[in-house]
Nucleic acid binder design. Structure first.
Ligand SMILES: [Mn+2]
Ligand SMILES: [Mn+2]
Ligand SMILES: [Mn+2]
Ligand SMILES: [Mn+2]
Lengths: 223, 223
DNA sequence: GATAATTTTATGGCTTGCCTTATTATCATA
DNA sequence: TATGATAATAAGGCAAGCCATAAAATTATC
């Protein structure tokens, strides 16, 4: 029944669904976009995953992970984020590149290696992008923060996590010191979904709404 | 022309050829045997590698790596053996299992990660099985030892390297403490390619000729 | 030199995961 | 409720890597 071993592709589809989170509903088109394949290809894979009992696809309604699929996705995320920690903390790989390199390793990691790696790292709970590292059973709770895109002008906040995965985007954020732990002030919000004006470490700059959606913050009590 | 990225399969074929070393000539059947595929499948891949200029196949004569192929194989071996070091020295994975886990990671390792890993490990020159770690350019020289199978009865020797890769075989050797650095005495050699009788750390046991071929030793001067 | 064993190649077929093009179904909205 | 946009599926194809079966080519052996 369940094939024990899952293909790289299948793992990436499941991980993509988990990464999108419960915030936005997964659809075939969104998956296609995220995985850089055509909608037809994404549709085929979703059908296969549905047949394997990993996702449930209700046409025109959305796709959701089954319990089995959620666990499988959690396991991929665990491997992914543990490798991110290793690459960043021990190999000193540039922050913006860590995701893409870990994204290769995540599919080539035996369970024994995963657990030994977690042990080696001291069982970290978050990756360098601030996202939670699922437990051994694949379970995890989402980051307790709000998207920067939905914050009110004038708010001062702690950056909790970056959900972006694209290296170019990460590089952009890295260059502007928009990293977990930093303090961010939202100075201005242009109308019509226009860019935000942020202040980070004394520097001001504009950030588009699409990127702001991929940054989770914790507003700080204004003293 | 050259596809920049090489498939896992192609990498495994090239690595297998490099691992067999110059000692025994590579043939389609030997590759098939080693990679657990049919001779037809091995033949097809050899043809593809030949077309790509990575190997030269002279039917009935043998297969050899081109310069390009030797470098590619050396790069795979470098990644493989660096991961072996990491898994063994830092994650404390059981010696016999290190190869198989590293064999997964070797195909999912970006060049930047490889070099950062080498740095992290202190640029080791041998893997836990005693085999040399190729340089960044993929070059390396074979272990300077003789197969235990060709040693004379009575010889006392230092075990230099184990070229075996099969987990079951490695487990067998591990259980008998036939590990790099250990001292081995060849007590007896049965006729007709029969088993050797060895002494390692005071214990005596028999070892088949096939396994003895995969153990490289350095005879010690008898005092 | 004939015969047996080994090695190689020819054929046809399978699965996965992509693709393009075209069609159908549903949703949103006027 | 018609209409245009969006989402989904149908149909046909391709490349990589496997497979089994069968035929040839070469080498080894008597
Ligand atoms: Mn960490
Ligand atoms: Mn990945
Ligand atoms: Mn080492
Ligand atoms: Mn491998």
């Amino acid at each position: 029944m369940s094939d024990k071993h899952m293909s790289r592709s299948a793992e990436m589809y499941l991980k993509a669904m988990a990464e999108m989170g419960p915030r936005q509903a997964a659809t075939v088109s969104r998956l296609a976009e995220r995985l850089s394949v055509t909608q037809v290809s994404a549709n085929e894979m979703v059908r296969r995953l549905d047949e394997q009992g990993l996702v449930t696809h209700k046409p025109y309604k959305g796709i959701s992970l089954t319990l089995k699929g959620r666990q499988a996705a959690g396991n991929v995320l665990r491997r992914q984020r543990l490798w991110e920690c290793f690459l960043y903390d021990h190999l000193h790989i540039e922050w913006a590149h860590v995701y893409e390199f870990a994204c290769l390793l995540e599919h080539a990691t035996a369970p024994e290696v995963t657990e030994a790696l977690a042990e080696f790292l001291g069982n970290p709970t978050t990756c360098p992008r601030g996202n939670p590292i699922p437990a051994t059973d694949g379970t995890f709770s989402p980051v307790d923060g709000i998207p920067l895109s939905s914050a009110a002008v004038g708010v001062r906040a702690r950056l909790l996590a970056v959900t972006a995965t694209d290296t170019e985007v990460l590089k952009y954020l890295q260059d502007r010191h928009l990293l977990p732990g930093r303090e961010v002030i939202l100075r201005e919000s242009a109308p019509m979904q226009g860019p935000l004006t942020l202040e980070v470490e004394g520097r001001e700059f504009a950030l588009g709404m699409n990127m702001a959606e991929m940054i989770l913050i914790q507003p700080l009590a204004s003293h």
